[in-house]
Design a binder for these strands. Sequence first.
DNA 1: GCCGTTTTCGGCCCGACTGTTTTCAGTCG
Length: 582
Amino acid sequence: MKNKEVAGILGKIADLYEIKGGESFRVRAYRSAIAQIENMGEDIEDVAARGELESIPGVGKATAEKVRDIIETGTTARFEELKSRIPETLTDLLQIPDIGPSTVRMLWQRLGITSMDDLAQAAKDHRIRDETSFGEKGEAQILRNMEMLREHGHRLSLGVVLPMAEDVIARLKETGLVKQIGQGGSLRRRKDTIGDIDIVAETSDPKALSEAFTRLPQVQQVIESGATMTSVLTKSGLRMDIRIAEPGHFGAMLHHFTGSKYHNIHLRGMARDMGLTMNDYGVHRIDTSETVVPGKDEEEIYRVLGLPLIPVELREDRGEIEAAMEGRLPKLIEQGDIKGDLHVHTSTSDGKNTLEEMVEAARQKGYRYLAICDHTITHGVTEERLLAQIEEIRRLNQERRTKNHERPRLLAGAEVHIRRDGSLELDSRLLDKLDIVVGSVHQRYKMDKHQMTERIVKGIETGWLDILAHPIGRLINRRDPMEINFDKVLDAARAHSTALEMNTYPDRLDLNDIYARMAKEHGVKLAIDSDAHAIGELATLRYGVMLARRGWLEADDVLNTLAFDDLLEYLQTRRSRLLVPA
DNA sequence: GCCGTTTTCGGCCCGACTGTTTTCAGTCG
């Protein structure tokens, strides 16, 4: 039973309580426990096995007992009892924009609606306008919102959404109306998937800025517009909001709309204990309403609470506030720490650019090294072409010594498929000629958990894998993660000094922050690689740095922050230790 | 349902926008 599944059932219980009504604080407690369980690095089953569920923040005696029930039996008495009184399918309706628990309850009690299909039919039959306070407009809006959920109800990759937001911000800057502008929400916190775009801006002309915002070429439709916020639907189906701060309050507004919700709730609780209240216009005394700081920047807000500025990527209430209080915030990895890319392809296999073009692009990025890892036999190079490529790489490195000193050094590598039985599809005679070996699963993703874990662990135990590429195997919105026991993979990776990849291909973002933090805590190194199949894709590596920061990673945790000589020594030492000739 | 640097009971973050509104509930972030 995965954390996601346990959280899913607790979420249903919370949903059913909300539809029932009158349980707002109980619901809040559930939601807070759910957020912790979804975001914790560890398998909830392991925590339960150790009897430490109640050490999870927000999980008390009652929730711990339900979690144990769910792990053991797949459900819990409270859930069954609620379902017997309130149709479970009602919780689906909560996904529809602008439909909340009160509306669901009303639709159910007054019209007998219990599912999406019921609701669509009732709207088409005009029963909603006739028998509820929703008018004709409201009824049409429900149908539109259901359509929107069907079409765009999913979250998009950070690698897709961030460039869109950057373009919007550049255009708004061009208007000359903004004094300060930035991203907010989960986008600014660099979550791997994004549900909507939040923008925060300071201007002396809110009306003109709102109008400029709604006239952007990306905008399909204006959803709502007021004095301090305007919300639109973009042509790509993403909701996009702009919040407008009064001069002098940009930091407070930015902080408020960066979140996360639970980070903010935690901070507001601290403020409350100090007799203070926080909102998007600064920090104020509760008794006199006197403004303590207006929130011109974010530092100001944290300072009032006695805290250093907490990096945006950490603001999830996953221990960052406690770490900040105790002065032990990590020194997070930065883009500039990256010295090279250890997983790129060329036209020798399925890449779009030649070896020379990839090298030149890497040089322009200032990389000190680049590992060429084309797919092996099944997916790409033949033995002859691989040998020829190794020759070419040696020649280029030789040439670099006499001229082109600024060119990155090249590592001869391959991306080797891990077969169903855990063997590698390249034999050791060829593997031994390579400087670096990246292993990955590229076929048969749907093995059961035990078999898939065995397969990957055996692959690692061959001793050849310097890096395990895209370890989880998901494609965002297209393919679910593989079923694996991640703890066992981590144990094997640590024992064999195999680094786990943070693959920054926008469809993958694999590993993400949560798994990366787990790896770090297991003493396993990470490698942030673009898996670029074209020169333009080298730049996606920044998404990996963002997710690494969310995973609390420091430069030392990441293989490709090493200087070239240190990297080479690391690889050679590793291989000589694990692959002593028999 | 959780939690405690006055607490094991009595609190629990805060505000904008919409329209089912004319003073407020529902939804959202």
